[in-house]
Design a protein around this nucleic acid. Structure first.
Lengths: 218, 218
DNA sequence: GATGTTAGAGAGCAGTGCTCTCATTCATTG
DNA sequence: CAATGAATGAGAGCACTGCTCTCTAACATC
């Protein structure tokens, strides 16, 4: 006896198709191109029927966001197996962003208006790389002694609490370094992906990442 | 004899009102809240009449973008008069972003889909801070000797050309340092404004900027 | 085989940007 | 000063979005 009826199988298939089409529309036309009506159209279904599979547009976005976070974190994890370094994190993320610019914008760009990320679904995959980076920076210290002063202990409380929930207990120096490195890496990629340096810069992306990481002392 | 008819004066007033309302809607509800129909409604005008004053939505956005770039660059210029340092650039931009988060997202966040910035109108105000930063970094060298290797000369050609058009001729070392510092500062502010570190981090924004700039060697 | 759930159709609401036509008001010019 | 032409606004309409509600038909289960 099969424990799945034809209807159940059809539903799973349709759900998978929806996320597939959604991801494709995101890649092709950006977030604005992701339209529930267009997906329904492509499924050969009337527009209202799509709501049998997806509560609303935000729920679809949550799926796409989770997918993207997972994809980039998987890439980073795999790359770190071959070479465990901050630079590897940077260039791997950079490479991923080059292949999926719209997905990058979805997870690291301007927050989507009115969208509220459901903690349970996106927080965990969304923090994977940061956790990895924190442990990485806990082990290796920077080549240059960074003279960055640590702010008053209580100021870092909320951040420390957030990291504790993820199973980490780094000291304040490491927290500060992590935040700095994190912001710098994402900032560089954002600046590149969003074209803030004008055209032509694509040719030196990797060199810029290398320069940045080495400037940060890693 | 007045060189302006009542009609001309009314037009100027209406145009000013449109940008005023547009800016307010941007501040209040983000870019998605900026709707031509809503502006027309507030002007007591039928929706189609708004197109007598504004070619289309993109033209309004161009105005808002130019305004924002000018505003933040003015702030930076004024702050630098009192204290000429990289840190001042960073904290001033950070402070501006705190006061105008939606305007910040407009100019430094994810590019607006399908929007094409008209070179003549936005490029000049949009590059003011970067030009300032480049000259700043041309004069003062970093405290730590950054061991960032410079990429092959031709790779920086497009960037060098862009800077030349703005009246600058920095050497490659300075270009690399500028790009790095620029990306790091914007990246940190983006990460803060876009809530990538979770809630509670607002309390240490300035300290983070201080730490970042000092880590960069300034 | 009756019952209840699920998938889908279809109409409709409110909102957006934008275009086109028509009327009215104003400014300029013969 | 009267006529011409430009500027302003009204109104209807198109195409698109997310989303809701009601109804019907297919399917699964008891």
């Amino acid at each position: 006896m099969t424990n799945s009826t034809p209807r159940q199988r059809a539903r799973l298939e349709t759900e998978a198709q929806i996320t597939r089409i959604g991801n494709r529309m995101l890649d092709d036309d950006g977030l604005d191109g992701v339209s529930l009506r267009a997906i329904a159209r492509e499924l050969g279904i009337v527009s209202s029927a799509i709501y049998r599979y997806v509560k609303n547009r935000d729920e679809l976005l949550t799926i796409l966001i989770r997918d993207a976070f997972t994809s980039i974190a998987d890439d980073v994890d795999e790359a770190l197996e071959h070479d465990t370094s901050v630079l590897t994190v940077g260039v791997t993320m950079l490479s991923w962003s080059r292949r999926h610019p719209n997905r990058w914008a979805l997870i690291y760009g301007t927050p989507i208006p009115d969208y509220q990320a459901p903690r349970d679904e996106t927080v965990v995959p969304g923090t994977r790389i940061m956790v990895t980076l924190t442990t990485l920076l806990s082990q290796s210290s920077p080549h240059q002694t960074s003279n960055s002063q640590v702010p008053p202990a209580h100021a870092l409380d909320p951040l420390r609490e957030g990291l504790r929930e993820l199973g980490l207990e780094p000291d304040d120096q490491v927290i500060m370094r992590t935040v700095t490195v994190w912001a710098a890496i994402i900032g560089l990629i954002n600046a590149l992906r969003f074209g803030q340096f004008g055209p032509g810069i694509e040719l030196v992306e990797d060199e810029l990442m290398q320069g940045l990481v080495s400037t940060l002392g890693y």
